[in-house]
């Protein structure tokens, strides 16, 4: 059930209205979208409710947003990153 699309590193991702960016990425089989500063380890969703900041992502050139809180909007451009 997909209502619109966003892109992740250029790849189209289907979204059901009301889903967060994090949920849409997980539903598309993407488990991580960030690598850590120190050990270069992959990170994705952990707490799911805005507490842990593991799921930081860049949305429409705005870095450091929590993917678990941002509700996806049509055409959002999501980029993975390092933080």
């Amino acid at each position: 059930m997909s209502d619109f699309e966003i892109t992740f590193d250029g790849r189209p991702i289907p979204v059901a209205a009301g889903q967060t960016v994090g949920a849409a990425l997980i539903a598309a089989g993407i488990r991580s979208w960030r690598r850590t500063r120190v050990a270069d380890r992959p990170r994705g969703l952990f707490c799911g409710i805005g507490v842990c900041f593991d799921c930081l992502v860049t949305v429409n050139d705005r870095p450091g947003l929590r993917a678990c809180l941002v509700e996806a909007r049509p055409g959002d451009v999501i980029r993975s990153g390092r933080a």
Partner: peptide, 13 residues
């Protein structure tokens, strides 16, 4: 590791 998440996160998803 990615794929390990809190019980609350799993429920929220």
């Amino acid at each position: 590791l990615p794929g390990v998440l809190t019980a609350g996160a799993a429920q929220a998803l």
